[in-house]
Design a protein around this nucleic acid. Structure first.
Length: 1035
RNA sequence: GGGCACGUGGCGGAAUUGGUAUACGCGCAGCGUUCAGAACGCUGUGAGCCAUGCUCAUGGAGGUUCGACUCCUCUCGUGCCCACCA
């Protein structure tokens, strides 16, 4: 036993005492306040801010907060300027319903809940910069939520609508499509009804394409064009604002093609427009051939996508294009002469690889080049889990198809209709149609048309009827001309009364009514087919009308069977697989009959065939999205007032304005008034409507009497932009100062629950893109990396809920084990994004680990140079030190990589192994112990801070430098080599790390256990994997 | 019906490009310490067997390979999301 190592008796580990102590010190020293420091790289790590319910936190909630805290502390130690804020999302139904239940004012209960949440968060020891706290219900905050709404209004992206919307009869409010789960209100579970009412809607569908496409953008473009109509050359049809940009390698040397513009001596790359039906790669090859004359151009890879700003010589103007950057190689020097036109403009130069960067004159393109040459690490624009991307893609639901018009023919003779149908003024005949297309003008002359959307125009010949949604606007007009008006009206009334869930129940038999007296004409073969209405057709998808092809569609099939409608089978009016289409108006079908089970016709025609058919019948090829516009008003009290004033007078003067006057920006915020009764009215009016003092205002335009909008915004409004406000929480003049926004944007890491995939994350991306378009933010996407938190389930495996009585309160765990143990345990449970059941008995393991680290301190001996020990003592210390160095330096890399990859469980496991190994050693140095503390400090900050200061450090471990592994200290001299015979482990031996393959092979043959297996057998071959194994293959 | 994940001891889970399956932790068992318990320490812990060792084991069945938890095909099961989307 080495006695000099004995220290004064170490105080026992007491988490409660040390955790309080350090939390106070951290707060008073303001060590965690974020600053824009241009000398440092920034790191913005964000939690999905909590919704402070009355229940308080359970142990599942902190999991994500602990992870971001680890990342925040880790990145700070790595020298980043870190932004790690926290705030509260407190408007909306749950807070209001809770207040109603407890008969308190929502403002009061929110205040109480926030205080409680904050306290619960504080005992975890997170390094939040509380000076940046935001609260969505604070007028200083929602002033800017309202401001964003006004900008949306200005751009025509917010509008009033009277279409039927989803209505929750229990919560007494309209709901967005995203707020519905299986036909029920996501909040209260009530069956959702369809109810027509005035509401505010945001045109999120205008952004559908970008929301979808940008999920796949891989690199970071600096610019983004939202609109563009350029063609490249007069008369040349090219894809809108799409370009290709080519880096072309020499056929022999490591040189690259540089275009020199003769006129201004500007150097650049081959640029070209991408034609319709041409891929970026094809365009790149074509343009390179056209501009340089080189004949044999080979595609190698796509380097990335960016926006290209350049001067186009031929048209003499500046151009911007969304560009794909391709890397090409020339096969040989064969070259045709190029056109004179091209010759005049440019020359070709070959430049060395190292000079390429000089003629790539833009940062983002340089970045791509660096990516190709391996100098830059690939960074995705959206480094999101594939599953979330897929969820969003499915939610946005893009599909391409044809809009096809069916002429309506009313049988005047049959129904005795007068030639002139009484006009119903102003009613629109088509969805989004022109307002002049009133029924009388259209039906006279039988030129009224029903427009359908289909993804299978190739089945057009099999259409045997057309179905409209009961809510389709045309149905109301047809009522005047059909024979069975009352029957149809009854059906419409019935489906109106049915809830969404009843209507969409798949097991339900199809229902519907024919509109008798009306036929439509199939434009493919001029055949007359009947028109039906049925609730299996959705009013708000496509055009609200379908062409029914019972032979090719299950739903149409069920409907046709039920009502005895003909089933006609498309027998290829054309060869489905050929690109050449021969069209004719001859009926290209046979009676369906017994062919139902035939698989002969399951093939879909190619897209080009379908496009040709569409053109043949005068239809349009279009893209449709499942995504619906965002119903943005709630008939409830607890939300941001929509900053709009209704003025009848201004309506008279300006019919286009419909009497909507935006609240002037200077008058913001429109403060939510205090109110005695905030019970929802259920009438479609919010409780605010009852406060006449608040409602009645002067019109800001004409100064006449006017009324405030009384609907409020949905819960998702405030959370759609809060991450921006953290960057500059107290700015009175703008939403966020552009300088600060440029420094901190975008969010580098966003951690939260997967349940927000199709709501918050779509809404926030939508608002962010809009804010980008109006110049309020500088990036096109708000969150670079997104990470899910896997739920922590109750010990019984069910969701943690009061209902099941399986809720574990983190406060209790902190009391018994300490916050550090809770933090370590939640991270050690398993993979971070995985759902795992809580196990209270397992926490003791991480607590034991902390105690081991605590006791390990007793093994510290002073550094060799400072001691005056006897030789044998010194020798043993030196031996220990070598061993300990190897152990500790090996784990640095492992922990660093694991934190980078969010593999917290394996990082902790590696630290446990390290501590176990160090325990087996007699002595360690202070330096080695310090490395251990630094590595552990993001996970268990309190105990590490305590030990760090106990061994004599004055500055906090939070600002210590993250250790870097010294490779010379960590390498083993010897490794264990496994020996396999025919792939099965039979023995092992030790060998020095630099042994040659032949050496290893020879040694392997000599291993005792192996020898007996080799006896009398011939060796076929031997596989040597250096530092790992030798496999001897026998005949 | 469509989409996306995922199946490894008694439990949570480890396992670089295919290269010692079950690391780490819990639990369990034995021993020590203790008046006793808790706590702690040490040892053991996939299964089976004719046991110095051998055979079988990563949901199941095949395949590729010198070698498969890892790759491919099929299949069974579980979870999540969307769903009459034309």
């Amino acid at each position: 036993m080495i006695h000099f190592m004995k220290k004064a008796k170490t105080v026992d580990y007491n988490p409660i005492r040390i955790e309080k102590k350090w939390q106070k010190k951290w707060a008073s020293s303001r060590i965690f306040q974020s600053k824009e420091d241009s000398k440092k790289k920034k790191y913005y790590v964000l939690d999905m801010f909590p919704y402070p319910s009355g229940e308080g936190l359970h142990v599942g909630h902190p999991k994500g907060y602990i992870a971001t805290d680890i990342l925040s502390r880790y990145m700070r130690m790595k020298g980043h300027s870190v932004l790690h804020p926290m705030g509260f999302d407190a408007f909306g139904l749950p807070a209001e319903n809770y207040a109603l239940k407890t008969k308190t004012n929502p403002a009061a209960s929110v205040k109480k809940n926030v205080a409680r949440y904050k306290k619960q968060l504080e005992i975890l020891g997170a390094d939040y910069d509380w000076s940046r706290e935001v609260n969505t219900t604070d007028p200083n905050y929602y002033k800017w939520t309202q401001w964003i709404f006004l900008q949306l209004l200005k751009k025509g992206l917010a509008f009033e609508s009277y279409e039927p919307i989803n209505w929750c009869p229990v919560d007494k409010t309209g709901l967005a499509n995203e707020d519905i789960e299986n036909g029920r209100c996501e909040r209260c579970g009530a069956l959702v009804e369809k109810k027509p009412m005035r509401q505010w809607v945001l045109r999120i569908t205008d952004y559908a394409e970008r929301l979808l496409n940008d999920l796949e953008i891989e690199n970071i473009p600096k610019f983004y064009m939202s609109k563009g109509t350029d063609a490249w050359r007069p008369g040349e049809k090219v894809t809108e604002r799409m370009a290709v940009y080519c880096i072309v390698k020499h056929w022999q040397d490591d040189k690259y093609l540089c275009m020199k513009w003769k006129k201004n001596d500007w150097r650049g790359y081959v640029i070209g427009g991408i034609k319709v039906d041409e891929s970026a790669v094809e365009a790149g090859i074509r343009e390179t051939i056209e501009e340089t004359g080189y004949k044999n151009v080979i595609f190698k890879r796509i380097l990335g996508k960016a926006d290209c700003h350049f001067y186009q010589e031929l048209k003499k103007e500046n151009r911007v294009a969304h560009a794909t950057v391709v890397y090409l190689e020339l096969k040989n020097e064969e070259q045709d002469s190029i056109t004179d036109e091209e010759k005049v403009i440019q020359d070709i130069e070959w430049v060395e690889r190292s000079k390429v960067r000089d003629f790539i004159n833009r940062e983002d393109l340089k970045y791509m080049w660096d990516l190709y040459t391996g100098d830059a690490k690939e960074q995705k624009l959206l480094d999101w889990p594939e599953s979330i991307k897929t969820l969003q893609k499915n939610w946005i639901g893009r599909s391409e198809g044809a809009l096809i018009k069916f002429k309506v023919k009313s049988e005047k003779s049959t129904i005795g209709l007068s030639p002139v149908i009484p006009a119903k003024a102003g009613i629109q005949c088509e969805k989004n149609g022109a307002s002049d297309s009133t029924l009388d003008s259209r039906l006279r002359g039988n030129d009224k048309k029903i427009e359908v959307f289909t993804t299978r125009p190739d089945t057009l010949f099999g259409v045997t009827y057309v179905v409209l949604a009961p809510e389709h606007t045309l149905v109301q007009k047809f009522l005047e001309v059909i024979e069975n008006k009352s029957e149809v009206e009854a059906y419409i009334a019935k489906s109106k009364n049915e809830t969404e869930i009843q209507r969409t129940d798949e097991t339900k038999e199809k229902t519907g009514v024919e509109l008798k007296g009306i036929k439509v004409i199939n434009p493919a073969n001029n055949e007359e087919v009947p028109v039906w209405i049925s609730d299996y057709v959705l009013a708000d998808y496509g055009t609200g009308a379908v062409m029914a092809v019972p032979a090719h569609d299950e739903r149409d099939w069920a409907f046709a069977k039920k009502f005895g409608l003909p089933i006609k089978f498309v027998i290829a009016p054309l060869n489905l697989n050929s690109d050449k289409v021969v069209m004719s108006t001859e009926s290209a079908f046979i009676d369906f009959g017994s062919l139902i089970n035939s698989e002969k016709f399951n093939d879909k025609a190619s897209e080009s065939v379908m496009k040709e058919i569409t053109a043949f019948v005068g239809g349009q090829w279009v893209t449709k999205y499942k995504l619906r516009d965002w119903v943005f008003s709630r008939q409830r009290y607890w939300g941001e007032p929509i900053p709009v004033i209704h003025c009848e007078n201004c309506s008279k003067n300006n019919p286009a304005g419909k009497g909507i006057v935006p609240v002037p920006e200077n008058d913001l915020p429109v403060v939510l008034p205090k109110v005695k009764s905030y019970e929802p009215t259920g009438t479609g009016e919010s409780p605010l409507a009852a406060i006449s003092k608040w409602v009645n205002v002067k019109c800001p335009v004409c100064k006449g009497p006017a009324k405030r909008e009384t609907n409020t915004m949905p819960q998702w409004a405030g959370s759609s932009w809060y991450y921006l406000r953290y960057m500059d929480p107290n700015n009175k003049k703008t939403l966020v100062d552009p300088k600060k926004e440029k420094y901190w944007s975008p969010v580098d890491m966003y951690v939260g629950g997967a349940e927000h995939a199709t709501r918050h994350l779509i809404y926030a991306r939508f608002w962010h893109k809009f804010l980008y378009d109006i110049g309020a933010v500088s990036t096109i996407e708000p969150f670079i990396k997104l990470q899910h938190v896997g739920l922590i389930m109750g010990e019984d495996g069910r969701k943690m809920s009061k209902r099941f009585g399986n809720v574990i309160n983190p406060d209790d765990i902190v009391k018994t084990f300490g916050a550090d143990s809770l933090r370590l345990y939640e991270m050690f449970m398993g993979p971070f994004d995985q759902q795992i059941a809580w196990s209270s008995s397992s926490i003791v393991g991480v607590r034991r680990f902390i105690e081991k680290v605590w006791k390990l301190r007793e093994k510290i001996v002073p550094s060799k140079s400072k001691t005056s020990k006897s030789a044998p003592e010194l020798d043993s210390i030196v031996q220990d030190s070598k061993k300990a160095d190897r152990i500790i330096h090996k784990v640095i890399g492992k922990v660093t990589k694991d934190i980078d990859d969010l593999h917290f469980n394996t990082a902790i496991s590696a630290l446990m192994i390290t501590v176990n190994e160090l325990e087996a050693i007699e002595s360690i140095s202070r330096e080695q112990y310090e490395i251990l503390l630094k590595l552990l400090s993001p996970f268990a900050p309190h105990v590490c801070e305590e030990l760090w200061s106990a061994i004599g450090n004055k500055k906090s471990v939070c600002v210590a430098e993250w250790p870097v592994a010294d490779k010379s200290l960590m390498s083993d001299d010897e490794v264990k080599i496994m020996v396999q015979v025919n792939g099965k482990i039979r023995g092992s031996f030790m060998a020095s790390v630099d042994s040659s393959d032949a050496d290893l092979e020879a040694k392997a043959r000599e291993v005792k256990e192996v020898k007996s297996w080799l006896e009398g057998k011939s060796v076929v071959k031997i596989i040597v994997v250096p530092k790992r194994l030798v496999n001897i293959v026998l005949a």
